[in-house]
Amino acid sequence: MTWNQIFSTSVGKKITMSLTGIFLILFLVVHAGLNACIWAFDEGETFNKAAAFMGNNWVPRVLEIGLFGGLLLHIFQGYSLELANRSKRAVNYAIPYGNKGSKWYSRSMAILGTLLLMFLIMHIYQFWTPSRLGGMMGIEKLPEATYNGKEIHNLFYEMKEEFENPIIVVFYVLACASLGYHLAHGFQSAFRTLGVHNKRYSILLSSLGYGFSIFVPLIFALMPISFLFKLV
């Protein structure tokens, strides 16, 4: 049995979704933890230094390639599964099955994922591109900040400027809500797909999943809100 055979069945494709999903969940923890440095209340010094470390050290840069790879695989496999699944019922019911036994968000992962993708394109354009590629190909450079005589990107100032616009803040908060619902199903579903069926672990993972899907998006949502209301 080849690796290709293993990952090309309907179960194999779901395993890919699950592994990339768990990888992205771990990334969220790192991202939320790092961004929480904005609440050091030092005009962004801790945050800018942390961001500069992530941008200049080779370990996070290599991991970043893996992150983009995992993200693209998750997106590609997700859409491919959604399209395949939608094609399996040529004639729909006159009376839809509805919510019986399932939550709306568990049936709307592709829509929630699409909202997240739209957000990600905007988010990458706003912060990642000027931070990593600023100065190249006519992309605007980030402002600089000087700490102990050393110049680094002032990402904190960039966030402050972007989040002065309430429309962008509302868009970010809505994206966090989409992330929350995507995780509410995705977190526990990923572990089910990897074969967790023991009752004890299922209950634990389900509770952990709901907790994660509320807590992490809430942290992310509080970041633009903090800037908008000048709390940092």
Partner: peptide, 11 residues
Amino acid sequence: GACTNTGACEA
């Protein structure tokens, strides 16, 4: 189709 663990089947 593939399973997306929604739980409609069990119900």
